[in-house]
Design a protein around this nucleic acid. Structure first.
Lengths: 95, 95
DNA sequence: TAGATATTTAGATATTTTTCTAAATATTGC
DNA sequence: GCAATATTTAGAAAAATATCTAAATATCTA
């Protein structure tokens, strides 16, 4: 996992909002964009960053491109944090 | 909790390394700095960012300033992530 | 195939961030 | 109080990032 890429991707509020929008399930680039006051080009840049960090997956469906969360990275992220902070009473366990 | 500040603070590799160094317990600014090829002034800037995000605490001890991890933020961070990613089989629980 | 729609890429600009040097502040010990 | 040490603050330069407009690419539908 590219730790630096993931943290950098999460540092931008627009990108976190994109991730949040994807919680409800996959959406096209355009559908995601509706929620933001930003050009499609800028959005596309953010998608690229999220994709590079492996936080989202893409799939072309006709003329649309569908984005979805890559939830496996979640576990990695949790581990990353555990690794960054002291154990403090065995919170870790299974996760 | 200042979500934006926390994520921004964690986005820099030097700052993550500082946090990691503090896992073993409190250290003075100078002791932390030994591990990095960076000026004290730059280090101080990083400390300020971490402090602003409430990730570290400071205490003056004589002519030294001692930094320590603020572990309570850890829980907040975990929660933040839970909030950003879908539940996926009740991983959350107690934490 | 041509026109319309969806998305990305290229290139430029503005903002933010990191880092530095120099100077300021705080504290210790003589 | 003065010199030495530890750290921060101020201000500037360099690097990275976010955003935009314009143009390119991919796909659909008539």
């Amino acid at each position: 996992m590219k730790q630096q890429e993931v943290f950098k991707a999460m540092a931008d509020p627009t990108r976190r909002a994109i991730l949040k929008r994807l919680q409800g399930g996959p959406l096209t680039a355009g559908e995601i964009g509706e929620a933001f006051d930003i050009t499609p080009a800028s959005l596309s840049h953010h998608f690229a960053v999220l994709k590079h960090a492996d936080l989202v997956r893409t799939e072309r469906r006709g003329q649309y491109i569908v984005y979805s969360l890559n939830s496996t990275v979640f576990e990695d992220l949790a581990r990353m944090l555990m690794d960054l902070f002291p154990a403090k009473g065995k919170v870790g366990g299974k996760l």
